[in-house]
């Protein structure tokens, strides 16, 4: 199932050699992260531990277990903390 993954420039600078808009075939966020880790070693742990994820505009605190739809748009964003 194709999904679109978009990285911020800080993530792409650090892990993907500047590539920031990718198509990943996966049915779950775990699958997306596994595929990204295979392609860009080291990114998986960062995504799991240090980012929130926005899937089709819905923000989730953790990337690990969220389900996906066909064509889902996925943004990894900094984790947020309020007051």
């Amino acid at each position: 199932m194709p999904t679109r993954v978009v990285f911020s420039s800080s993530l792409s600078d650090r892990y993907t050699g500047g590539e920031n808009d990718l198509e990943i075939d996966a049915t779950s966020m775990r699958g997306v992260i596994r595929a990204l880790e295979e392609r860009f070693p080291g990114i998986g742990e960062h995504l799991e531990e240090e980012t929130s994820v926005a899937i089709d505009g819905e923000i989730h605190e953790t990337a690990y277990f969220q389900p996906l739809k066909d064509g889902s748009e996925i943004f990894f964003i900094p984790k947020l903390e309020g007051g």
């Binding site: 978009v6 911020s8 926005a54 089709d56 505009g57 819905e58 923000i59 748009e73 943004f75 964003i77 900094p78």
Partner: peptide, 14 residues
Amino acid sequence: DVGTSMVYGPKLGH
């Protein structure tokens, strides 16, 4: 509104 692009990446979901 829903679908507006945010400067930090995703589109607004609500």
